[in-house]
Every structure is written in C-alpha cells, then in structure tokens.
Amino acid sequence: MAGWFDPRRTNIERWAYTFQRVTGLAVLAYVVAHIGDTSFFVGGPFGEGPSRASWAAGLSVTESLLGHLVLVMVVLVVVYHGINGVRLILSEYGVIFDKPSRPDYPYRAKSLRAVQRHLIWVAIVGAILAALYSGGLLLG
C-alpha cells in the first residue's frame, strides 16, 4: 500500500494515479453515506417508517456549514475522478498517444506527453472550477 502514496520525484501521471485512488475511496464513502441519508425518505436506515420528520432529520445532516463544505469536497472529488476516469479509458483505447517509434536520446516517453497529460490538467482545473461554483451556490 505504501507504494500508492509515495509519488515523490516522479511524473504527474503518478500523482493523478494516487488522486484517482484516493478520490475513488472518497466517492465510495460518499455513495454509502448518501444511500443512508436518502433512505430517510422511505423511513430511515433503521426502519422507523416513512415520515416528513425522518426525511427532514436526514436532510439536516448536510444543512450546516460543515455539511456544505463536505458537499463542496464531494463535487471536487467526483469531477476530478470522472474526468480523469475518461482520460484513463481513452488511454486504454490508445487514442491519446502518438504512434510508437524508435527512441532517440535524450529519451522522452511518448506516453507521458501530448493529449493525455493535458487531460490531467483539465481534470484538475475542472474539479476546482466545479468546486468553486458549488461553493458559491451553497455558501454564497
């Protein structure tokens, strides 16, 4: 496991890899919490029975400054994870790389250049913009 979280002195793709893992776990945690939260609509996770009161109680969990900050973080990690996921799918189809060719010194790996590297920045900037927008809506 330590290998996942030790991206020192290396390429940005390794950072993207680490963030993809961490945000994947965060999204999974959010989905589980979200299912628990919305289950209040049909009576709560412990079967209290459907009622407006139980739904309001569930909704109140996120109706606070801390809850809103958590939701902004959720937007941040979901947008990053989604865009970076598309980058990984495209890379697996081999459509964002130059063709292989005879390497010449000084060697620069083709897979670490061009479109796929730009897409990492698209994921980072896209996630920040989405977080700022959602922060403006929730906190503004």
Binding site: Y17, S91, Y107
Partner: peptide, 12 residues
C-alpha cells in the same frame, strides 16, 4: 497508468 515505469526507463 501511473506512468512511472516510462518516467524511469533509461532506454526510452
């Protein structure tokens, strides 16, 4: 696709 393998490869 962490890409570290390509970043450290000494022969391109």
């Amino acid at each position: 696709f962490a890409g570290t393998c390509s970043a450290v490869c000494p022969k391109g």
